[in-house]
Each structure stands twice: as C-alpha cells, then as structure tokens.
C-alpha cells in the first residue's frame, strides 16, 4: 500500500533530540487530525523508541537516529524508528516488561511495554552490530 504522505528525518542520538523528535512528529501528524489522547499516545511511543536508540543503540558514541512517519487511508499511521547501533541479541528478552540493561535505579525497563500498549501493533527487528528497527502502527478513530 502506498502512503498518502510521508516524512523522514534523521538526527544525532543526543538526548535533547527526544523532544525535537516528538515535536516534529506532532507537526507532521496534525494533518491527520488525531485526538489529543491519540497524539499523546503516538508521541509517547516514539519518545520511548528514540530514547532506546540514544541510551542503548549508541551507548558510547553519537550516531544517527532515523524517524519515518507515513499516513495511509483510513487514518492508519505507520512510524519507523531505526538506528545503526549495537543491535539487540535477544529481542524477545528486551521486550519483557521491567527488563533493562540500563541503570535499574533510574530506568524502569518499560519502553517496549509502553510502545505495545500505546500503539496498535509493533514489530522489532535487530541484528547485533548492525542496528535495530522498530515499526509501529496505529489507526486513528474516524471523526465525523
């Protein structure tokens, strides 16, 4: 299926760009007229995915984070967050709630659980040493 509209941005894995990614995404999604809770859900999921890139994909270096958002018929939005970082050896383990390789005192290990809960569908593919790709979709409720 071909997207009706699409945007791609890439930015350094600096934590200040977490807010930039949310803001850019929100500006693009405005044309799909999401409800306030829908937009908040998508922004939260993307914030989690981008934070994962910054904290986990590029732990000791700065690399590029690739954010793509596409709009389809029927209010379907598809968001891809990808990196060329260290990758995840065991994706299933990484997606377990409360699992984190970050500082357990400060990281809740909920990133993937939030993405799963706040979006309709999420698919994670990763290759150690090559990078990780998270694809998330959500259908906006139609507004009469």
């Amino acid at each position: 299926m071909k997207a009706n509209n699409l945007m791609k941005i890439s930015f350094y894995s600096r934590s200040v760009n977490e807010g930039f990614a949310r803001g850019a995404l929100a500006a693009f999604l405005a044309q799909a007229d999401p409800t306030v809770p829908e937009l908040a859900d998508v922004k939260t999921a993307v914030s989690e995915a981008v934070t994962n890139c910054i904290v986990h994909a590029y732990p000791d270096q700065v690399g590029l984070v690739y954010l793509t958002a596409a709009l389809y018929d029927g209010g379907v939005i598809k968001i891809t967050v990808a990196d060329k970082g260290i990758g995840i050896t065991d994706v299933n383990q990484a997606m377990q709630p409360m699992y984190t390789t970050g500082n357990p005192e400060e990281r809740a290990g909920l990133g993937f659980a939030v993405m799963q809960s706040f979006m309709d569908k999420i698919k994670v593919t990763s290759k150690p040493g090559k990078g990780t790709r998270v694809v998330m979709t959500k259908t906006l409720q139609s507004r009469e």
């Binding site: 949310r22 939260t44 005192e105 400060e106 809740a108 909920l110 659980a113 939030v114």
Partner: peptide
C-alpha cells in the same frame, strides 16, 4: 504536559 517511561524511572528511584 508530557511524560514517557523515564518519568516512571524518576518516581521509582525517588520511592526507593
């Protein structure tokens, strides 16, 4: 106005 799971980490760390 916005909080992702980093806020949960913030809460749990202070609770400890």
């Amino acid at each position: 106005s916005f909080m992702d799971s980093s806020g949960i980490g913030l809460i749990l760390g202070r609770a400890k």
